[in-house]
Amino acid sequence: MMSNLDRISARRDVRRAASLLAAPLLWLLGIYIGALAILFLTSFYTVDSFTNQVIHEFTFQNFIDVFTDHAYLNATLRTLGVAVSVTLVCAFLAIPMAFYMARIASPARRPFLVALVLTPLWASYLVKVYSWRTMLTPESGVIAWLLHPFDVQSPGYGIVGVIITLSYLWLPYMVLPIYSGLERLPSSLLDASADLGASTLQTMRDVVLPNVKPAVIAGSVFTFSLSLGDYITVQIVGGKNQMLGNVVYQNFSLNLPFAAAVASIPVVIMVVYLAMIRRTGALENL
């Protein structure tokens, strides 16, 4: 039985919670969801060919243009390919790194290692991408020089260069969730696995990996979405390639509805991706 006093304080709690949540909720609904909705709505409008201003006339033409010109399908596939590759490369590199940091390194050194992983984030994005441009220079770059003894050519400027550069940029976002996932893994599981005679590889495959899977997926949300939206790196190290973001960037000041139609593609991809991973429970790991 609730006393009157309790009821009043409960009501007060609700009110306090509401006043606390109002601003962030307004932000989420108005600025974030609202902006997405307007973006989607804009993609059905057209522009005045003289002033380039948006005319509020309903048309499917922008989507017809996007889906009938194979160039945009190419751009979508290329962007998707880059995002998937970057995510795989990051996962491949981050799992052993995070395992060492969380399980092998002495606890005293762990914060130091985490700080080391984070240091690249302190430098400017452009500085890092331009450094990669210098390193990737065909024939005379440091990568060409390193690969020369093995008779392998530098990847130079192109899609491979983009994947390498983006993997470097987003690696910390993959390492951190996996690190925290591994840190939470009880030692008793590893001990039990060893006691029951499993080899290191078996333990890795059957005990560690299934346990960090949600963490890897959580990390992949970052690497995947960041790669999907990137359009600067590809301009600097991508040779003559472009990604979806470049198409948006090139058109948004002249033909906003068309740019909005193109911009809807990565949004749809991300929604599908998030819906797919929601089942895995990885979203709680973010």
Binding site: A71, Y72, A75
Partner: peptide
Amino acid sequence: AKAWSSLRN
């Protein structure tokens, strides 16, 4: 602009 995007991709 559209033609340029198309050409580039």
